[in-house]
Each structure stands twice: as structure tokens, then as C-alpha cells.
Write a protein that binds this DNA or RNA. Structure first.
Lengths: 301, 301
DNA sequence: TGATATTATCCCACAAATCGGGATAATTAT
DNA sequence: ATAATTATCCCGATTTGTGGGATAATATCA
């Protein structure tokens, strides 16, 4: 029962050549193989496909009908194979990318525009969200994330660049707030926590180049999974917040926020690209990563 | 490289089931077989079809495209197989039959009409000719012939019924002709020979129930490959002719021809059906033979 | 957080299918 | 009549495929 397709191919060869031996030659096999292929096919179909003497081979009516039906199918199958082969190197189709919202609205336009110009055949689908999508289940080709240590073992990931963070608060808040000289003072403050990663209610801070991080448990006054809204809350005097610098850069320049505890640093977090566990990335994904990384140097994080 | 179709089937099974082991169960094989089928397919296509961890299996974009292309093709292939299977028992399609002209014009209408009523799905193609067609090359499903001993080894044949022959001449011819008492007198006569079979210029005759035939070499006055025309020539006084009785029956009744040498008989010839060298005849051919044989008893040959 | 269960993959020995070559019988061409 | 071509059959050898167990990874559940 195995090798059905090969038998059909032999059948088509014989039908075209009009001879078993000619088909064997054309196929690079032996005449016994051809005989058996046809015999087996006739057996499994229960129909005689050829009427044959030792000198003449001719399609039966059933054989002719079968040939007509099967011929375009085999061609289409081969075409499907070729199409699949081409897909690996295809710069077409769709490219589904997930990206954090705050980051995407600030930095994605330039690389996207360039990529779209370079590869107009690719249909870019960008999903801006701050939640961690299931790359495999939801069919993403790439997911950009800003996180500490990629622990995901079911994906491929690649660090793009570090994302500096800083502690900020509104000048108005600080004026009326308790003193703030070291992280030990933080529990007395209103702190706004980012609730996407695991534990937003604990900050880890280290002094200068000190190695070990010290955990600081805070009493959250407000929690949100979006950095921009956290920054707005802080600017409105909501409290202290630990955020990527790029999110608060404008507010810092405008003076609506200012940094606190500048001598302390939080653990490094990275802009990281996650991919489905391909053994070899399709070319389109590769190209997108190239373009994106090229722009990453100019983000000024 | 062999077993491509089986691999594709496994691929489709996995794509549907969303799991290798589930596909293995559904297919009645082992998970190792499934793994290898997919791996081999990916190898030959050069594309990763599934993105998989030990817990999740998901189609890649290339895999999804391949699935969409391949799915209808596999179904169509299976349908083609089923179609071929049905052909053996099909009472549809065309039935190409060759038949001698003189015979066909006299006896074919009734069985054809009945068969057409019984099997309206079959497209009957009757070719009336007195020459021996190449059943295999010209794609006939059946060829009726009137001949002595079927020597054709590349076909299947089946005797339907004997076709009595008789020697006849016009009364007008006989009045002015030399005496005719035994075959030995024939060389002195004008004889009309039928030139389809091998040797029309030699008649073999035996007296009564005598066993051995005696060859009589004649001097042909006219030769033709059509019995009706020979009969007309004889009726016009052209000479003596050896013809199937059914051809001259009307002329005998009308008196335009009468039999001679009634005590002598020519070798038996048979109405015979020839078929392509099928190992098992398709049902449509069988049915046609049935109807035809049923009528053959009433031909009154 | 730790233990359990599920899963894809790898490895290995065994079984099965396939192949090619030679022999055979049939048939056509010379 | 002879030779050449052809489909088929048979047989030994090779290739291929398979299933079961082991393994590593991962998700689920307590």
C-alpha cells in the first residue's frame, strides 16, 4: 500500500510513453519495477488500467479516465512542493509581529516604513500590546518584548539592546513627600508599579556599581500594565515610578517629572526579540530583524 | 524519497490533530513514524512545516500554505481512485463496438435498442465495417466478426453462434452456364469471391457429413469485401457466390437467387465476439454481450 | 515551588517492501 | 523461419520503514 504516488507517476509515464520499457528508461528504473508498479496499482484500484500484449500497450477506458483525473493533480502536487520550497526564501506572505505598546508608538514607524519599502510584497501585521502573547499558539513570527531575563524555553530569543530605566516622580509630589535618600525610604512613599512582569510590587535596586541587588517591598498606590499611563499618573503627583527612560524622557525634559535616587540602579532589562522555535528562521523574519536592529542603534534609549 | 504521499497524509493528519501522537493514533502508527514522516517531508521540501515544542505543535506559515494547497489535491486523488474503482462496475461511459456491415444492418437494431433502454448511461459507438479493426490500438471494447477459426492471440474471443453459408447463383446465370453437379465443375464457372479473409480464391467443400474438406481453386470473376454487393452481383447473373445465408435469404425467397450444390458444405464459420485482452471484462462489456447473445438466438441464421 | 505526566525526538534491532537482473513466453518484424 | 522486442515472473540482495524503549523538554497540578 505504500508508494502510491510513485506508482501513479509510473502509471503516467507508461501512459505517456505507451510502453513499459520506455517508461522504465524514462524513469531510470527497470522494467520489472514498472510492471510491478502498474500491477500493484491495478490491484489496489481493482481496475485494469492498461490492455497489453507483449507488443502493444494501450490505456483502457478506466485507465484513460484515471489519467485525465490524476494528471493535473500530480502536477499541482509538484507545484505545491515547489511553492513550499520557495516559502523559506519567500519575501512575501504575512509577517505577524507583536510589540509593546509604549515602545511601538515611539520607535516602530521608522523601521516599519523602511521595511515596507524594501519588501513591498510582505504584508506586515503589527500587534501593539503590553501583554505577552503566545508566539506559537497565536502564530506570531516575532514578538518584541522588554523584559529582564528571557526564561522562555519554548522560543528562540535574541537581545537587541538594553533599556535603561530610572526612578521618577513629579516635583510637586516630592515637595510634600517624606524624605527620600535611599531605597529604604521607599516604603514610606506612594509607588506606582508596573504589573506585567511577575512581581511589580518589589523593586530590586543596587547602589552604583554594587553587584548585589537589594529587594525593596513597596506598598503600591497604583498599578498598571502600561508605562505611559503610569508616567501620566506620576506626573500628576501620583508617586514614584520605575520606568524605562524613553517613556519619561519628554516629561523629564519638560520638567513635569524628575529623577530620584539617581545613584541607584534597577536590574538591566533588555529589548528582546522572540521567535517561534524555528530551526532556521524564514528569510522574511531575518530581514525584518536586520532592519529593526539597524534602527535600534538610533533609538537613543 | 519514496512514500511521499504517505508523508503528506501524515502531515495533514498532524495539521488536523495538532499533535504528533494524536496523529499517530488516528493513523494507527507510532509516534516515531510520524516524527520521521514530518522530518523527511521538511527535509525534502527544505521548509519547516511545524513549529513545535514538546507540548505545542503549530503550523508555520509555509506549512499552512502547503496544507491549503495540498488538502484539496489529496482529496481529489482519493476521489480519482474511487472513480477508477467504480469504473470497473460502471454502466456509463462509452462502449465502442465494431461490427460487419452486412450483419449490422440486418440484426443490430434490436439488441442495440434494448441495451440502450437498459443502460441509458452508456454512450454506444457502433462502427460498421467489414475490415478487421485493431481492437487494442483503435480502442474498441468489442468487435463482432464473422470468421472461420479465430487465430488472433492478442485478443479474447468468444463464439456466439455458427453462421450457415450456402452457394447461390441467379437462375438466369445457371440457365446459360455449364453443368454444375460437383465442386469439380466450379473452375468452369464464373465465381465471385469474398476478399476479406485470407484466401477468397479457394473454396473448401465437403460432401454431406464427410469430414475432410477439399480445396477448389477457382478463377475469380469478381471480388469484393462486402457480402451485399456480392449478392447483388450474383443476382444480376454475375456468377456463383459463397455467402452467409442471412445475406441471400431475401433473394432466395424472391427467387432472384437459388442455391446450388446443396449437398456440399463449406467450413463452418462463426459469429465471434472479440475483446481487448482484459483479465476481467468491464461490466458494461459483459452486459452488452449478454443482451447481444440473448438476441442471437432469434436471428434465425 | 516541586512532582507528575505528556510530548517530540533519538536510537536500535527487526521486518518488510522494493529493486535489478536474468529467464521465459509471446508476438512482431525481417 | 529467424531474430528481436516486450511484458512478466522469479529470486537474492539491498534498502527502507517500523515499533518500542529511552531521553530531554515542557506544561500541569498540587
Amino acid at each position: 500500500m505504500t508508494g502510491h504516488l510513485e506508482r501513479i507517476k509510473t502509471f503516467m509515464e507508461v501512459a505517456s510513453a505507451g510502453s513499459f520499457t520506455a517508461a522504465a528508461r524514462a524513469q531510470g528504473s527497470s522494467s520489472s519495477a514498472v510492471t510491478r508498479h502498474i500491477a500493484d496499482l491495478e490491484q489496489t484500484l481493482g481496475v485494469q488500467l492498461f490492455v497489453r500484449t507483449t507488443r502493444k500497450v494501450s490505456l483502457t477506458q478506466a485507465g484513460a479516465v484515471y489519467f485525465e483525473k490524476v494528471h493535473p493533480l500530480i502536477s499541482a502536487l509538484a507545484a505545491a512542493d515547489d511553492g513550499a520550497r520557495a516559502q523559506q526564501k519567500a519575501l512575501s506572505g504575512t509577517l505577524q509581529v507583536s510589540c509593546p505598546l509604549s515602545f511601538g508608538t515611539r520607535f516602530l514607524q521608522a523601521p516599519l516604513t523602511e521595511f515596507a519599502e524594501l519588501h513591498p510584497g510582505i504584508d506586515l501585521r503589527i500587534n501593539l500590546t503590553d501583554s505577552f502573547v503566545d508566539i506559537i499558539k497565536d502564530g506570531y513570527d516575532m514578538a518584541l518584548r522588554i523584559s529582564a531575563a528571557p526564561a522562555d524555553k519554548s522560543t528562540i530569543w535574541r537581545k537587541i539592546c538594553p533599556v535603561p530605566r530610572c526612578l521618577v516622580a513629579a516635583p510637586g509630589y516630592l515637595e510634600q513627600a517624606p524624605p527620600l535618600a535611599t531605597p529604604a525610604d521607599l516604603p514610606n512613599h506612594r509607588c506606582l508599579s508596573y504589573t506585567n512582569q511577575s512581581d511589580g510590587d518589589t523593586w530590586h535596586l543596587a547602589h552604583h556599581a554594587e553587584e548585589t541587588m537589594r529587594p525593596v517591598r513597596l506598598t503600591p498606590a497604583f498599578a498598571c500594565n502600561n508605562g505611559d499611563l503610569l508616567a501620566q499618573m506620576a506626573a500628576a503627583g501620583g508617586g514614584i515610578v520605575l520606568l524605562p527612560r524613553f517613556i519619561v524622557a519628554d516629561a523629564l525634559a519638560a520638567g513635569t517629572l524628575r529623577t530620584v535616587l539617581e545613584d541607584w540602579r534597577a536590574p538591566e532589562i533588555w529589548l528582546t526579540a522572540f521567535y517561534p522555535p524555528y530551526q532556521k528562521l524564514p528569510l522574511a523574519i531575518d530581514r525584518f530583524t536586520d532592519v529593526f536592529e539597524q534602527h535600534a542603534g538610533q533609538f537613543g534609549l
